[in-house]
């Protein structure tokens, strides 16, 4: 199977600050990958590097087997919908489609026109007067009609209302199904990621905290509740993600490759949102208020 994204100790530094560090990932093609993490965790940086918009300061990266900024051929393979979905305010919707047609060798003009019509955009309207949701739809149309193999979206629906967000995700998934697109998108809305993604990458503090197939992540993570005890005494192969204690009880969220048989624990499954939130909290902060979310 070909690789969608392959990075080795990838890093990006701005002056003294590392925006992304030691990022090593292997994501197979054909996936819809969700990148989650708090603001400033390095999501945009990683996506911009993958889209060839930004040069890394360390490590290596391969996207669909090629180097991101290697030339027009690689740019044609990867679509990119940038954060806040920028558009030329003075140009019309039709102008933007023309821009896409002029600048992309594999442009699908019919698909672009159909999409614009279906989402109800007026081709003669200037994009400066479009709503955030409409602009996002235009950006998605440009990204899809380019006919890339991979579409990268940086927080595409962060600033739009729930209805527009749903419509956007519908359009995105439809395109993914129709053209067998791989998708790499960042979001801080775990519910969206849960709905559309089958591969998850959690970035915290410019480091990758966890990455993997969503189903595998869900089946390998467990919530354990039982009498209070020290998490250091757990058997090998069980990695604590988060801990919280009350006077008598200990609640653990852990990752284990094999089933848990210890009868002292009550084992329950973990939803994706709780899983993500557990990884977003600092791992050593047992008992801190930040872990309230786990109860």
């Amino acid at each position: 199977m070909t690789t969608l994204l392959r990075t080795r100790e990838l890093g990006k530094r701005y002056r003294r600050r590392w925006a992304l560090r030691d990022c090593t990932l292997d994501i197979p093609a054909g996936r819809i990958v969700g990148l989650v993490g708090p603001n400033g965790a390095g999501k945009s940086t990683l996506l911009n590097i993958a889209a060839g918009q930004l040069a890394p300061s360390a490590g290596s990266i391969e996207v669909l087997g090629g180097h991101p900024a290697s030339g027009p051929a690689q740019l044609a393979k990867v679509g990119f919908v940038a954060q806040d979905t920028p558009a030329y305010a003075a140009l019309t919707v039709a102008d933007h489609l023309r821009l896409g047609a002029r600048l992309n060798p594999r442009w699908d003009a019919a698909a672009a026109r159909n999409r614009i019509e279906r989402v109800g955009l007026d081709p003669a309207q200037r994009t400066g007067t479009l709503s955030g949701g409409q602009r996002a739809q235009l950006a998605l149309t440009l990204g899809v009609a380019k006919r890339p193999e991979l579409l990268i979206l940086d927080e595409p629906v962060a600033a739009v209302d729930p209805l527009a967000r749903r419509e956007f995700l519908q359009g995105l998934m439809e395109a993914a199904a129709e053209y067998e697109l791989s998708v790499l998108l960042s979001s801080h809305l775990v519910t969206d990621v849960e709905r559309v993604c089958d591969y998850l990458v959690v970035l915290v503090d410019s480091h990758v905290r966890v990455a993997g197939d969503v189903d595998e992540l869900l089946s390998s993570h467990h919530r354990l509740t039982g009498p209070r005890r020290d998490p250091g005494t757990l058997p090998a192969g069980q990695h604590v993600v988060s801990v919280s204690h009350t006077e008598r009880q200990t609640t653990l969220l852990l990752r284990a490759e094999s089933p848990i048989h210890d009868p002292a624990w009550t084992v329950s499954r973990v939803g994706l949102e709780d899983l993500v939130l557990a990884y977003l909290s600092p791992p050593t902060a047992a008992g801190r208020p930040a872990l309230e979310v786990l109860r």
Binding site: I32, Q170, M173, E174, A176, E178, V196, D198
Partner: peptide
């Protein structure tokens, strides 16, 4: 079709 389902539900095509 898979396309119709994902276009309606906004879910991952692989799920369907």
């Amino acid at each position: 079709t898979v396309k119709d389902v994902v276009a309606r539900l906004a879910i991952n095509p692989n799920t369907v």
